[in-house]
Design a protein around this nucleic acid. Structure first.
Lengths: 138, 138
DNA sequence: GTATATATGATAAGCTTTCTTAAATGGCAT
DNA sequence: ATGCCATTTAAGAAAGCTTATCATATATAC
């Protein structure tokens, strides 16, 4: 989780970071790839993955290991929780207080040195619950 | 998350469930495959994946969507939190109280119908922290 | 300017899900 | 019970997502 001393700020990295910062959604690696490719058409998907991973390790961005098929990335690194719609798969930030005190509880309840925690809620978003009401007989 | 009415208890399903119940670790799909194959040598890896997924959807078992490369499965379905060692990747249960009240906080802070939540702590397990002390110059 | 370290893009490999086909099961009317 | 049909399942193949590997290119340090 530390900034590596010899990490260069390449064009690719800069543009990946910029594009990720433009959106408030939590794009998948492939979505980032699509955004970046408009400005760097010759970039490889592997480079996008490698750099998202590296930046997540350095703490510059957040990698969301949430439910669902694909992993997602977030330019906002202030600790915050997420909620995923089990119906459409969308992931939103949730504006609630981070429960810092549960780290101490975890420290007491385990043999681990606690580094942090992440909470993911699951639920049904407003759009999907509206869908369900409109078309309940599918 | 509901038990499907027409879900058969096939031999494959029964043995997958039995083998998963035998261990307290949180095996990956491939580890379950290895265990099951000793009793059903002709079972396909796809069948193991499909059935673990199906049983997780039905609520019979738990699918841990935690960090790391591979997903893990757990026969214990009572709500509980997990902790993952960032050094060796091991996942343990953590014996602390489930914070049910944060679901209400999440309900207030979002437009979602909250179904539940999961907490994953990250930390360094005792074995790995001992390693680090013994060999700090790697 | 040269040596060294790091990054890129292409490719391969690993993990997981989805699709297809064939077999098995359960219900229902003989 | 027997046969028929619709549904469910397994297995294997294929496709999708992610990570690792490799040769080449690029940037940094001296």
């Amino acid at each position: 989780m530390e900034q590596l001393p010899n990490m260069r700020l390449t064009t690719q990295r800069q543009i990946i970071l910029e594009e990720l910062g433009k959106v408030t959604s939590h794009p998948t690696a492939n979505e980032v790839y699509d955004m970046v490719r408009k400005r760097l058409p010759r970039i490889g998907l592997g480079t996008v993955y490698r750099n998202l991973e590296l930046m997540a390790d350095s703490g510059i961005i957040l990698k969301l290991e949430v439910g669902g098929t694909q992993k997602r990335f977030d330019a906002t690194i202030e600790p915050h929780y997420h909620i995923r719609c089990t119906s459409c798969g969308k992931v939103d930030d949730i504006a609630m207080e981070v429960q810092g005190q549960i780290n101490q509880a975890a420290e007491r309840a385990s043999n681990y040195i606690i580094l942090g925690h992440h909470v993911e809620f699951s639920g049904i978003c407003r759009e999907c619950s509206a869908e369900t009401i409109k078309a309940p007989l599918h």
